[in-house]
Amino acid sequence: MISRVAESCFWLSRYSERADTLARLIDVNLAFILDVDLPAEQHWLPLVTVVGEGERFAELVGASADPDTTQGYLVWDERNPTSLSNSIYWARENARTIRETISLEMWEAINDLWHWLQSDESREIYKDDAHAFFAHVTSASMLFHGLCLTTMSHDEAFDFMRLGTALERAQQVARIMDVKYHSLGPTGPGPETSLESAQWLAILRSCSAVESFHKRSASSFDGPSVAAFLALDVTFPRSIRHNVERALNFLSRIQDAGGLQGRTSEAEVILEDLRVVLAGHDKASLVAAGLHEMLTEIVNQVANASAAVERQFFSSAVLSEDGATQTQ
């Protein structure tokens, strides 16, 4: 398929997933900060840090900004490339240029969400009932993903969309887990404070993982157990390992459809290495290896894999020696 179209499919689903994750994260944090006694600037700053906006925020807004301003930066600020508003805008922009590829229903879902976000109504809801605001965003995102599964052909365009979703989700879950490090410090094997437990519960809720987690590890609720579940569980749809495996699966579908069976791409090598690392860990070794360091490494490796996908599939402007494909 045309590279630009594939690229838009990939980014459309990444931005949509990003908006969804951010909405969940903020929504849960709103409840969390009411339950715990943290200094005001610690309410939102860890979130700014994990989305990678620490420096820009300090420069544009100032690290000592009040909670409402900081929350506004995460949701509305056009200067913040990862803001909720920007993510939805870019999801729609990508969708707009590939309307002939996605289904009408998908277009309407993302277009409606953008128009809603621009409306006075959404601003009112944001002020009066923030939970309802974020619930609207997450349900619109879920609608979009559901429509993707049920209204468009499961062809190459679909595979690129699902690949984008898997990579984005793996990366976002790693970022969410790192909120704990940025607000309360490293996670060790020893006994934890009630504040730490509350935060791990909030993280689980951000990932819609509370029930799944308790079914899996009914006896113990502590940081390392939650971290191990979110990073290493094979079946939970928001775990990092699950999404790395899904990304590998969609990558190989794309390669096979392109008649490239047996050829290994750079992105595949990176993700396979990551999969092996995750598969080799358990709760104890994860904590021993240093959770924050692990999560940082995961975020970086997924970014590398994404860049490799870009190089291989989206920028084929040069003819190679044999005049055919220019993969390595």
Binding site: I2, A6, G259, F313, F314, G323, T325
Partner: peptide, 13 residues
């Protein structure tokens, strides 16, 4: 390229 037209696709030009 060389007076021929190519589309940039996911499988190369």
């Amino acid at each position: 390229d060389d007076d021929r037209v190519y589309a940039k696709t996911t499988r190369g030009p």
